[in-house]
Amino acid sequence: MMKVPELVSRYKAGQRDFRNLNLIAANLRNLNFAGANFSGSNFTGANLTGTNLSCANLTGANLTKAKFSETNLTRSNLSNSDLSGVDLSRANLRQAYLTGANMPQPI
Rank of each mutant, 00 (worst) to 15 (best):
M1Q: 11
M2Q: 13
M2H: 05
K3E: 12
L7Q: 01
L7T: 01
L7C: 00
L7R: 02
V8P: 02
S9E: 10
S9R: 10
R10S: 01
Y11Q: 03
K12W: 04
G14K: 09
G14T: 10
F18V: 09
N20R: 15
N22Q: 09
N22A: 01
N22H: 05
L23D: 07
I24Y: 11
A25G: 00
A26D: 00
A26Q: 04
N27S: 03
N27D: 15
L28P: 05
N30L: 06
L31S: 01
N32S: 04
N32Q: 06
F33R: 08
F33A: 00
F33Y: 09
A34K: 12
A34Y: 04
A34R: 09
S39Q: 15
S41D: 01
S41N: 03
S41M: 03
F43P: 11
T44H: 09
L48I: 15
G50R: 05
G50L: 09
T51F: 10
N52I: 07
N52M: 00
L53M: 12
S54I: 05
A56L: 07
N57R: 12
T59G: 00
T59D: 04
G60C: 05
A61H: 03
A61W: 07
N62I: 09
N62M: 00
L63W: 14
L63S: 02
L63K: 12
K65I: 05
F68H: 02
F68K: 00
T71Y: 06
T71C: 08
T71A: 14
N72S: 08
N72K: 15
N72I: 15
L73Y: 09
N77E: 11
L78D: 05
L78M: 10
S79Q: 15
N80W: 15
L83N: 01
L83Q: 00
L83I: 06
S84D: 07
V86H: 08
D87I: 14
D87W: 15
D87P: 14
L88P: 12
L88V: 03
R90F: 14
R90H: 13
A91H: 06
L93Q: 10
R94L: 06
A96N: 13
Y97T: 08
L98P: 07
T99S: 13
T99H: 12
G100L: 08
A101Y: 04
N102E: 08
Q105D: 03
P106N: 08
I107H: 12
